[in-house]
Nucleic acid binder design. Structure first.
Length: 360
RNA sequence: UGGGGCAUGGUGCAAUGGCAGCACACCGGACUUUGAAUCCGUUGGUCUUGGUUCGACUCCAAGUGCCCCGG
């Protein structure tokens, strides 16, 4: 019998993932990871395992999570970046932990409740594809997974729509079917990340000036970490809405401006991961997503020296944010991605007076 | 210590005698396994005192405060 280690959060998605895996003939070893805070999910997780009749182990990985996800998250903010903790966590914590457990118990496979699909290419390589349910697609969060990880991974939810999953849950009579979606590993669950930083950062936030792009001093900010590129909330009132254009670390100043002063076509990406494991040698045409819920934008990706990539979008991109993940797609397939290093300004006045992020 | 102008929500502006509106901000909600954006909704105001009028943000007088020009 095929054995699989399934990461269980206590939510409906991973519960139904368990059910679907069982239908496919897998024997499930459930693994619940305690990453942060208190063990509140334990009862729910145990209940699901009992209902579906498989074993579940509860593992406390709080220390590793703190060191490998939370501390880098805090440091990134202190460094003027806007980090993407989930993308790193999936690779460095979630997958590495469940694979380790799989090795330990002699399971060939691991599984999670992510909405994304895996396909096997002609050459035997594993491809990562968007979920059928594009509204729930989470492939972006898996940008940093490797062939070694994906070879042993099963994603049972990728072919389903979310409403179907809920329906299956309610048909099975699972209590979890009525609960709201869980936040899974998210240590920020229900917390404003600013409050989190205030509580957990070693160094207090450093207030500084807010300048308009044209040079006027508009007010004070409470610390650059509390803002991100493209942010509108929390800025001084003005004749029209203001957005964060730049976090200038050199003088601890926040540069803001109007909608038509925001955006660029170019940016650089580092720490690049290609799902196939193979770097392209030539420029390639992709659709790039610069945030989890961004609309894909047509772009060219050009390899640079030092493993950097230069991304050139056909249209102006709003909110190119250092620290966020740029994910490269071709159609439904996720090719890979990396961390945005910096945007290279070349805005065109008025470009965003039209509707934003025009879907194609 | 001369002359002129202004005073409307937290901010910037509309309403010129007839139910005080708009933008931005704030607050709440939706959306979301990062952070944002976006969408929906709510709150909140005529500097003070007196006068004219059926009725005053609007007209008149005084007070108070701010700005400009003379200096």
């Amino acid at each position: 019998m095929k054995k699989v280690v399934l990461a269980l959060s206590g939510g409906v998605d991973s519960a139904i993932a368990a059910h679907l895996l069982q239908q496919q003939g897998y024997q499930i070893y459930g693994l619940n990871l305690l990453t942060w805070g208190e063990d509140n999910q334990r009862k729910q997780v145990q209940e699901i395992a009992d209902d579906l009749n498989f074993l579940v182990e509860f593992m406390d990985i709080r220390q590793a999570f703190r060191e490998q996800v939370v501390q880098p998250f805090i440091h990134a903010y202190q460094d003027g970046l806007t980090p993407s903790p989930c993308v790193f966590c999936n690779r460095q914590i979630k997958w590495s932990t469940i694979l380790q457990k799989a090795d330990q118990i002699g399971a060939d496979y691991v599984a999670t409740g992510h909405y994304a699909r895996l396909k096997i290419a002609q050459d035997g390589k594993i491809q990562l594809w968007k979920a059928v349910d594009l509204a729930k697609d989470q492939s972006y969060m898996l940008t940093f997974l490797t062939q070694d990880m994906l070879k042993r991974t099963v994603l049972p939810l990728g072919e389903f729509n979310k409403p179907e999953i809920r329906k299956i849950a309610s048909n099975l009579g699972l209590a979890v079917s009525e609960r709201p979606d869980s936040q899974d590993l998210c240590f920020l669950a229900c917390t404003d990340y600013r409050d989190f930083l205030k509580e957990h950062a070693e160094q207090p936030a450093l207030p500084g000036p807010i300048y308009h792009k044209d040079g006027r001093l508009l007010g004070q900010h409470q610390g650059l970490a509390f803002y991100t590129i493209g942010q509108r909330k929390g800025l001084p009132s003005s004749t029209e809405a203001l957005y964060v254009i730049e976090k200038r670390k050199a003088d601890n100043s926040l540069i803001v401006g109007f909608l038509n002063q925001l955006g660029s076509n170019f940016f650089l990406v580092e720490q690049v991961n290609w799902i196939s494991g193979q770097y392209p040698l030539q420029p390639i045409k992709v659709e790039v997503k610069i945030r989890y819920k961004a609309n894909p934008a047509e772009a060219m990706v050009e390899p640079q020296a030092d493993g950097l990539l230069k991304v050139t979008a056909d249209k102006l991109l709003r909110d190119i944010t250092p620290g966020q993940i740029a994910a490269f797609y071709q159609g439904e397939q996720l090719l890979g991605g990396g961390v945005i290093v910096e945007g290279i300004a070349n805005r065109t006045a008025g470009a965003f007076l039209q509707p934003l992020d025009t879907p194609e």
